[in-house]
């Protein structure tokens, strides 16, 4: 089942300027990556190693962690990786941005991404494999969505006997499943010590950072949340 879009409208009526900008920039950078990969693979690899989150480089006092923790949010390892993250950002980011306001949302997004990167670095501290993607940031946005709009209706898509269905699924099912899946995956990796190519720890780090959403909500939304009204 694939989530497609959030069916509910913005309460504060703001255009999701930051969400759209992030998507546009990320897609543009990914197109550049693809182009570079086709023309000069070595440069492409070096670019990923430098601008992605490479734990050993980040743990070093002479490293460039402060840059790469931010730049890695805009780099992706493949079309599916990009589509997955950007679709989730598009679905869940719009209303979270609306509840925060553009500036605060952009800081929240970066903070979640950073926390995701940190979680990833602490787990793979000796690794020289760069990790890429807005996983932590998007997980943070999804977590914030779960906190603010647990009953939000997400139009989803699935096939049953080759017939497409578009049900509206409550957000807590989708985000809850995502969270549970990540927790189970992390346990699995912990016991099997297997190598992994998905940033589960980054997802969980981002999820943890989403609790800071209360520092980013516009005053009105904050007040509505604690008055137990829809934010």
């Amino acid at each position: 089942m694939f989530p497609l879009n959030d069916t509910e409208s913005n309460r504060y009526g703001n255009f999701p300027f930051v969400t759209v900008t992030i998507i546009v920039i990320t897609v543009a950078i990914f197109l550049f990556e693809v182009r570079l990969m086709q023309t000069d693979f070595v440069k492409f690899y070096l670019l990923l190693r430098s601008l992605g989150v490479t734990p050993r480089a980040m743990m070093s006092p002479d490293g460039w962690g402060a840059v790469s923790a931010l730049t890695s949010l805009f780099l992706h390892g493949g079309w599916l990786h990009l589509l997955g993250n950007m679709l989730a950002l598009f679905i869940f980011g719009r209303r979270v941005e609306d509840a925060c306001g553009a500036w605060r949302f952009s800081i929240f997004y970066l903070l979640c991404g950073l926390c995701g990167a940190l979680a990833d670095v602490f787990i793979r501290r000796d690794s020289v494999m760069p990790s890429l993607g807005a996983n932590g940031a998007v997980a943070g946005v999804m977590g914030a969505y779960l906190i603010l709009f647990p009953m939000g209706r997400i139009r989803s898509f699935f096939f049953a006997w080759f017939v497409p269905f578009f049900p509206q699924v409550r957000a807590f099912w989708i985000v809850g499943y995502f969270l549970l899946f990540n927790i189970l995956a992390v346990f699995d990796l912990f016991y099997t010590q297997a190598d992994f190519f998905v940033g589960y720890w980054a997802h969980l780090g981002g999820f943890l950072a989403c609790l800071s959403i209360f520092f980013f909500l516009r005053p009105e939304a904050h007040q509505r949340y604690f008055a137990k009204l829809a934010v």
Partner: peptide
Amino acid sequence: FGSIALYSLLALLFGGF
């Protein structure tokens, strides 16, 4: 809180934790 927290984390990263 937000921008202060973000800056602190980035500075910590810059110093290799």
